[in-house]
Design a protein around this nucleic acid. Structure first.
Lengths: 100, 100
DNA sequence: TTTATATATCTATATTTATCGATATATTGA
DNA sequence: TCAATATATCGATAAATATAGATATATAAA
């Protein structure tokens, strides 16, 4: 992991809501209602559920999640009209190892 | 570690120079000249050396280091007119465990 | 005690980020 | 095809951060 990549991750983790989202996504089944279409959380949680729980506008949360995916800490999977986001544990591990 | 505390650390790690400083402080003897007064790096590196290497103004670096100490990732030790800064590995570990 | 040096703090301005509403795009279902 | 829904993107403005120079403070050295 380069300095630049680590800094991009740091920027995503410099806002309380975004850190909170990372925490929520550790346990989707505990923090979110079940999806109607997908019967599991294997691919994470859809934007709408995250937005409702965060209580910020849809556009704000969409931008957050997009940037968090761009820097690698989230993985997005599209199913039909839904975008599901989950943690990218591999990159998160690389980041924490970089810091230590 | 609380969400708030983790976010404060994230803010410190959201700037390339500050992340760079954290990296430099992993190996002070490799990245900085020896101090004239103190003959070791046990307490870290003085502000002036960090400032010169970072090539930003003294006030900027002083503020950076002060904030990094406030959120816990650095430890400051004062010796005479010098302030020495070193990594706080314990808090860094707590932070990375929080993220994982 | 005066002077020099290291660091901290204050004030100001430029830049970046936060956040929203509006709108565009994509997909599904009627 | 058309309407509804989910998400993404755009444009604007408010708030926060970056950064410097000036100045204050603390300590050491002369």
């Amino acid at each position: 992991m380069t300095l630049k990549e680590a800094t991009e991750i740091g920027k995503c983790l410099s806002n309380q809501t975004r850190v909170q989202i990372m925490e929520w996504l550790k346990e989707p089944e505990k923090n979110f209602p079940p999806h109607e279409t997908l019967k599991h959380f294997n691919d994470g949680v859809c934007v709408t559920y995250i937005q409702e729980k965060a209580e910020l506008s849809q556009s704000t949360i969409s931008t957050y999640l997009s940037n968090m995916e761009k820097c690698g800490i989230l993985i997005m999977t599209r199913h039909g009209k839904w975008s599901y986001f989950r943690r990218n544990e591999k990159i998160i591990k690389q980041y924490t190892q970089f810091l230590e």
